[in-house]
C-alpha cells in the first residue's frame, strides 16, 4: 500500500530540534569507560617477562632494560642485595592498533589503557614514545 510523504512529518518534527552531531573538536568527544586508546606503562611494576611483546599483533611494543639500573643495597652483614631490574617500554604508536591485548596479558598490571586518543602527529618520529 503506497502512502506518499512518509518521512515528511518526521522531517517537520526535526526542524526545531538541535543538531544530532557533536561539535568535536570544539567540544570534547565522549568516551565510555573501558575505551582503548594510548597505552600507559608503569616501570616499577614491570618484571620484564615480555609477554606483551609476544602477543602484540602489530609488533608495536618493546620492553628493554633501562640504561640506569638501581644500585644494589647493602645488607646488615655487608652482603649485596640485588634490586629488581628496571625496564623501559618503547611504544610505537604508528604501529599500535589499540587492541589492548598487552593490557590483558600483563601479569603485573604494568600496562593500562588511557582514554587519550588525540594522537595525530605531523612528524612520525614523535609517535615513538619512550616510557621510563
Amino acid at each position: 500500500m503506497k502512502k506518499p510523504l512518509r518521512l515528511f512529518p518526521e522531517a517537520m518534527k526535526n526542524l526545531t530540534k538541535k543538531a544530532a552531531t557533536s561539535k568535536y573538536p570544539f567540544e570534547k568527544a565522549k568516551t565510555y569507560p573501558g575505551f582503548r586508546a594510548r597505552i600507559v606503562f608503569e616501570s616499577e611494576k614491570c618484571i620484564g617477562c615480555k609477554m606483551c611483546m609476544r602477543v602484540c599483533p602489530a609488533g608495536a611494543i618493546e620492553i628493554v632494560l633501562s640504561a640506569e639500573q638501581p644500585a644494589p643495597q647493602t645488607a646488615a652483614d655487608g652482603s649485596q642485595i640485588p634490586q629488581k631490574k628496571k625496564f623501559d617500554c618503547i611504544m610505537n604508536l604508528d604501529r599500535c592498533i589499540y587492541c589492548a591485548q598487552c593490557v590483558d596479558i600483563c601479569p603485573k598490571k604494568a600496562l593500562a589503557s588511557s582514554p587519550d586518543f588525540e594522537l595525530a602527529q605531523f612528524d612520525r618520529k614523535k609517535l615513538k614514545l619512550h616510557y621510563t
Binding site: 568516551t31 565510555y32 573501558g34 582503548r36 589499540y98 590483558d104
Partner: peptide, 20 residues
C-alpha cells in the same frame, strides 16, 4: 562502545571466552 570499549573493532572475543 559501552559494552566493548570501542565503536568499530570491538575486540570483545578471545580464545576461550570474552574479554569484558
Amino acid at each position: 562502545e559501552l559494552l566493548s570499549g570501542n565503536r568499530v573493532h570491538y575486540g570483545m572475543n578471545t580464545i576461550g571466552g570474552v574479554r569484558r
